[in-house]
């Protein structure tokens, strides 16, 4: 069973619809046992890092996610869900993340008004790791909407986009994956990426 963590911080319904479109019967849940017993977990999120972490903590889901990941369950964070995989964020001071991928989340610098923040729109992926199942991402556009980005060791970056600075788009560490963009809003490319995750990461 594939779970989509539903913690009232994100448009989980569109992720659910995209899963249905690629033939995957996923379920929205915040139940710890169901999450831990899933064959894979999707972790969407939009909004503010701190609010979302607080909500996870209130629902007792921080340790549930950490345990689920540590037992090897394929885990995919989307947008804010991807950012929360890292150690911390500078949003509203310094907020602790899930600590599953080394690195931190920082505000995209506007360079004194020279760069538009948020990044909102379609940007072209450059493949940074040839060994990934997501090789098809090379030169493909995906849809982003975010004001913060991941700063991490290149070893975790699968693809990145050029926004005047390099922004990690797909990150990966062992069974943990993160998409900074919205696959559920990235047309056929987004559906391909979800399908690839289900067929080549989950099925492995």
């Amino acid at each position: 069973m594939i779970s989509i963590i539903d913690y009232n911080a994100g448009n989980v319904y569109n992720v659910l619809k995209a899963c249905q479109r690629v033939g995957v019967d996923a379920q929205l849940t915040a139940d710890p046992e169901q999450i831990k017993n899933s064959s894979a977990v999707l972790f969407p999120g939009v909004g503010a890092f701190k609010d979302a972490m607080d909500t996870l903590a209130d629902r007792g889901l921080v340790s549930v996610i950490q345990e689920t990941v540590n037992q090897g369950t394929p885990f995919l964070g989307i947008c804010l869900g991807m950012q929360m995989l890292f150690d911390s964020s500078t949003e509203f001071g310094n907020t602790k993340g899930l600590g599953l991928i080394p690195g931190r989340i920082e505000k995209i610098p506007d360079d004194n008004g020279q760069r538009i923040v948020p990044q909102a729109g379609w940007n072209e992926n450059q493949l940074m790791n040839q060994q990934t199942v997501f090789k098809g991402i090379q030169n493909q556009y995906t849809y982003f909407t975010h004001s913060y980005y991941a700063v991490c060791n290149p070893q975790y970056i699968v693809s990145s986009v050029d926004y005047g600075l390099q922004i990690p788009a797909i990150v990966n560490r062992d069974n943990i994956y993160g998409f900074q963009f919205h696959p559920e809003k990235s047309g056929q490319v987004g559906l391909y990426l979800l399908k690839t995750f289900f067929e080549q990461v989950v099925a492995k």
Binding site: H182, K185, L191
Partner: peptide, 8 residues
Amino acid sequence: VSQQVFMP
């Protein structure tokens, strides 16, 4: 629309 079309 959002069940059929996966764009913003």
